[in-house]
């Protein structure tokens, strides 16, 4: 992508195109990766609701895999996950492992 010169910028750095966060992949910020364990999932979709980005995919009303391009590893989904019989359906794993 060609970077803009100073004469091509909007006044005050205002972003005029809505929804452009999609173009900015933030997954590389992650230190901990959430891992979904399907057998412990009760399909409450709390993770989808609580995710501050759009890293949790839902297909036909059911939880699907992570979109790791947008997951910064905040861990909110893992914290909120009620799991099944005391077993979490989302666990955080260190990226380097």
């Amino acid at each position: 992508m060609k970077l803009k010169g100073w004469k091509e910028l909007t006044p005050g750095a205002v972003i005029l195109e809505a929804g452009n966060a999609e173009e900015f992949k933030t997954g590389s910020w992650r230190a901990f990766r959430p891992v979904w364990i399907e057998e412990n999932c009760i399909q409450c979709l709390f993770c989808w609701l609580y995710c501050p980005d759009m890293a949790i995919k839902v297909k036909d009303g059911k939880r699907a895999e992570y979109d790791y391009d947008y997951c910064k590893g905040c861990g909110i989904c893992a914290l909120e996950c009620p799991g099944k019989k005391g077993q979490k359906a989302i666990v955080m794993v260190e990226e380097s492992r």
């Binding site: 005050g12 750095a13 205002v14 972003i15 005029l16 809505a18």
Partner: peptide, 9 residues
């Protein structure tokens, strides 16, 4: 015409 003020540059 939705827009954002104050982005990280």
């Amino acid at each position: 015409n939705p827009k954002s003020y104050g982005p990280l540059i």
